[in-house]
């Protein structure tokens, strides 16, 4: 029993950056933008989140963990959104090819994050890290009354605040797509921009906003890596592939944000399998598992064709009103 709880705990912690990447990309793709730059935006979020926290620590008289966390979240959101803004400008305004632009954004984001990370490390004497107070803000919560419950407390109420933020975002996004007027309009933009346009919806605005907010959410996922996974220390190439798994997860969960929670949990579990399910196989095989699963997911989902659970129809295509 304990080992199952431990596995779930570890899966949640490992799956959270995937959840953010997945949610950000769902929001982006719902506007008809296929942004393959998730990896890049997560990298950008990772370095900027850490940088923002360090910056706060350098100006604060006494460091408050809560404020440092807020700086990290906002900093990563903004830098991730900046990556998405570059992407939006290129694809929506200049109508550049979406795939190429997204791939370029990944390369750009990875490069600039590692570059800035090294600079930060040099500025701090060869090793970039936040103070223990800030580390504490990203530690697992202890919710009075709830965290102490047997089983349930450990299973549901013992994570850091970013995990709950991710779940809240997933549920809000579910409500937004399902129930709201703006959500309906956004989905229309992704499905058929010409229809949305003739219904009086500002297609360009919707695409920009959804893509930038989506990029910001991806950025928070990156921050999770640098603040929680590596415990507030800059590690070269820390995001390494999570963004790509998130892109595949979007397909796996059929563009449904609430289902994204489950998808991220499963893939988080796969990535920590080696520590909790000893099978006596080489380490390298364990490390392959999430990627092999991604490939299988892509094959299975491309066989399963349905109108409801598929990519927004105009995804990957740029919209130009006067083109026929």
């Amino acid at each position: 029993m304990d080992s199952v709880i431990n596995l779930v705990n570890a899966a949640v912690l490992a799956g959270t950056p995937l959840l953010f990447g997945t949610l950000g990309e769902i929001l982006t793709e719902k506007s008809g933008n296929l942004n393959l730059g998730v990896e890049g935006m997560m990298f950008m979020g990772a370095v900027s989140g850490l940088w923002a926290a360090v910056f706060y620590e350098s100006i604060a008289a006494t460091v408050s963990g809560v404020l440092a966390a807020i700086f990290a979240v906002i900093g990563s959101f903004l830098f991730g959104a900046l990556g998405a803004l570059i992407y939006s400008f290129l694809t929506v305004t200049l109508r550049a090819n979406q795939n190429v632009t997204g791939l370029t954004l990944t390369i750009f984001g990875t490069g600039i994050a590692n570059f800035l990370g090294e600079i930060l490390a040099q500025n701090m004497g060869g090793y970039a890290r936040v103070t223990t107070v800030t580390q504490g803000a990203f530690a697992n919560l202890n919710i009075p009354g709830l965290s102490d419950l047997p089983v349930v407390g450990k299973l549901l109420f013992s994570y850091n605040f970013v995990v709950y933020l991710g779940i809240v975002i997933a549920l809000v996004m579910w409500w937004f797509f399902k129930k709201t007027r703006v959500g309906l309009n956004l989905r229309a933009v992704g499905e058929s921009p010409a229809t949305a346009d003739s219904a009086g919806i500002n297609v360009t605005l919707y695409k920009y906003l959804a893509t930038c907010i989506g990029g910001g959410i991806c950025g928070i996922g990156g921050m999770y890596v640098s603040m929680v996974t590596t415990n507030g220390v800059w590690v070269y190439n820390c995001v390494s592939g999570l963004g790509w798994i998130a892109v595949a997860l979007v397909i796996f969960v059929a563009w449904k944000p609430a289902l994204g929670i489950l998808g991220a949990l499963v893939f988080g579990g796969l990535s920590v399998l080696r520590m909790y399910v000893p099978l006596g196989i080489p380490m390298e095989i364990y490390e392959m598992v999430p990627y092999v699963a991604t490939v299988i997911v892509l094959i299975v989902t491309s066989i399963r064709q349905s109108k409801e659970n598929s990519q927004p129809k105009s995804c990957g295509l740029n919209y130009f009103r006067e083109e026929r």
Binding site: L184, N185, A188, E191, T195, A199, I201, E308
Partner: peptide, 13 residues
Amino acid sequence: VDVFTAAENVVLG
């Protein structure tokens, strides 16, 4: 929009 209902299409925008 193909994947929307009639009502959703009507209220769009």
